[in-house]
Simulated assay, not measured.
Amino acid sequence: MAIILGDSDLEELPVMQLAIEAIEGALLARSMGGLVSPPRHNVSFAEKGDLIFTIGGMLDDASIAGFRVYDTFKGPRHEQITAVWSTETAELQGLIIGTRLGEIRTGAIGGIAIRYMSSPDARTVGVIGSGQQARAQLEAAALVRDLTHVRVYSRSERNRYQFALEMEERLGIPVEPVGSPRCAVREADIVICATSSLTPVIKADWLKAGVHINTVGPKMVDEHELGLDVAAAAHLIATDSPEQVKAYKMPFFLEGTASAERLVDLAAIVSGKLTVREGPGQTTLFCSVGLAGTEVLVGARILDALKARAGAD
């Protein structure tokens, strides 16, 4: 019988660590052609909104397939459903309902980008944004780098102080709320931009040489949280899904610029096919767009961990 989980069930396991392991395996499989990950598919319901499907899985001996679906309907609460099948047995292994899995998956992809693209001795982080994805990105960063200090800025003073209190307690490292985005990023080895801003939130000349940046928020040509100056300053620019970049209805924010020609696949970096840093002063940029199918693989890893724990009990 399939297992059905909700957000609260995910708190019983080290889900971010499980997700990072699953994402790393997925990107290695992608580099060898073993990951199914087509661009997301939108089904429109006129002015009501869309249902959006991401479908994918792994082509190996323990083959997993499935989908995630979420909505853009006008309402106070938005649920997501992730379904996981075994393609070997045709068994529906489980359903995960809620928003937490998507946050964890995206955070874990950002964590893998930081593991493979940031300087190995990166210790400090500047965070712009104080929502759930900023939390997930920082949690993942703390699992892949030995962090010593974090600064956070968001437009709401209350929100950035709450973020600092919560994440300092969760991670066990100092998290300092600051009064400007420049103060948050100017000495950071790693910068995380996770906002809903439609205009750039940082400038290239605020950043130290050799920084790594993750951008998670809007990335369309007329609406983007990161400026073209930051992309132009980057020695290397990567994304988790070049296919999704090309499939957007609106052009990607780098389209038509010289920076677009330098966009590479994160999977090629994880597999060692591309060298990231040739010197300590080189800046790197990761543009998160959402690699389809990875929610399914993270969900499968969580379901397996719960089954293993139940068996041990």
Rank of each mutant, 00 (worst) to 15 (best):
R135S: 15
S156A: 09
G279P: 00
G299E: 05
E79C: 09
A26R: 04
N214W: 11
L254N: 13
L5K: 02
L228S: 05
E225P: 04
S156T: 04
A258K: 14
H41K: 10
L254K: 13
A113I: 13
F163R: 06
T275H: 01
G299D: 04
V216Y: 09
M1K: 03
R277V: 13
A308T: 14
A188M: 07
T82D: 09
L165W: 01
W85L: 13
L101S: 07
Q282H: 11
L10Y: 01
Y116H: 15
V298N: 11
T89M: 05
A247S: 14
A141Q: 11
T239D: 09
M167D: 12
V152W: 08
D146S: 15
L28C: 06
I190G: 10
L236S: 11
G290C: 05
Q80N: 11
K273N: 09
G98E: 12
L59R: 15
S259Y: 12
R309P: 10
Y161Q: 15
L263F: 13
W206K: 01
I190E: 06
K74I: 07
T283C: 15
E223P: 01
D71V: 06
A29F: 07
A62S: 15
A46V: 08
E103Y: 00
S86K: 00
R158M: 14
R155E: 12
R277P: 08
S154F: 05
G57W: 10
T87Q: 00
L27H: 07
G66Y: 04
E168N: 03
A310V: 12
L198D: 03
G172K: 10
I213K: 12
I213T: 15
I20E: 08
I269S: 12
D7Y: 00
R123N: 09
P14H: 05
D60V: 15
G6L: 01
H212W: 07
L10C: 01
V270S: 09
L138T: 13
E12I: 02
G25Y: 03
I269Y: 12
V69M: 10
A134Q: 07
R155K: 07
L226A: 04
E223K: 14
P218L: 11
V36K: 05
A113M: 10
A134S: 13
R135P: 00
G126L: 09
P218H: 02
P38Q: 02
L303K: 03
G210E: 11
V298A: 04
L101I: 02
K249Q: 12
T54S: 10
V245P: 09
E187I: 00
G57T: 05
M117P: 14
P218N: 05
P14D: 12
E255F: 08
L291S: 08
I128A: 09
E255L: 08
P242S: 06
R135Q: 14
S196V: 04
V69C: 04
T199P: 02
H149E: 15
D265H: 08
R182H: 03
I173G: 02
K246C: 04
S44P: 05
P181Q: 10
R277W: 06
S37H: 11
I64V: 15
D71C: 08
D121W: 08
E47M: 10
E168L: 01
Q80D: 03
A164T: 12
D240G: 11
R100Y: 00
A260R: 15
G57Y: 00
R100E: 10
Y161N: 13
G279H: 05
Y248L: 11
R158C: 07
T275R: 12
G57F: 01
